[in-house]
Amino acid sequence: MTSPSENPLLQTERVTIRFGGLTAVSGLDLQIGRNELIGLIGPNGAGKTTVFNLITGVYQPTEGTILFDGQSITGCKAYRITARGIARTFQNIRLFSSLTVFDNVRTAFHLHLQGDVRHALWRGRAFWAEEKAIATQVLELLEIFHLEKFRAAPAKSLSYGDQRRLEIVRALAARPRLLLLDEPAAGMNSSEKTDLMRLIQFIKGKFQISVLLVEHDMQVVMGICERIAVLDYGVKIAEGRPDEVRRNPKVIEAYLGEERTHDA
């Protein structure tokens, strides 16, 4: 892991977004290093998912710039940002429900297609060779996550935990350099959470990518993140190693409320 301050993979500079009179994220400076696992936490409504939507181009910032690998992606459309190398999962699972597990992952491969519509129409040798290569890679990915046995099943028929994992597989199929995970542990029991933590660390090592993790579950965040940023009301109130953040009075205040002394 390189230090995030020099040559970061992602850098947001004073990013602000306002919805009408509400400032959802205010002056956010965030850096993500290469092959770093960073957590973004904060109470409900702190603006965590909004930060995701800003980075992935779902929202455009009102002010500020976002740099990915040194180049501005501010104002880029979502699909272009994915093509640059940022992929994500969603807080409320958004799989392609009528497609099979296989096809869900295959769809993400279209970014790496050499041929275009004409290939699909002509269906020549090159087309079949490419489709076959993609199928092999899709099955490889599914195997890593033990989902290959469901490959022909519709995505919506999977269990909740499997759907979450399938979303991660689909995001990885886009071959990102930065993976954004939006509350991957939501709705999981503690043994599933342990599996998930292992999985995230495995992904980071195997694919050599950076991961930005939004999560409510402190067990997960504190357990695997190398660095944590804390948001409250759209403002970054703390940043540092998990043990530092855990002791930070501002963080404790944001989560538990202000400490009052009762001297009469």
Partner: peptide
């Protein structure tokens, strides 16, 4: 939304 996020 998911399609856009997958680069489509």
């Amino acid at each position: 939304v998911a399609a856009e996020a997958m680069g489509i």
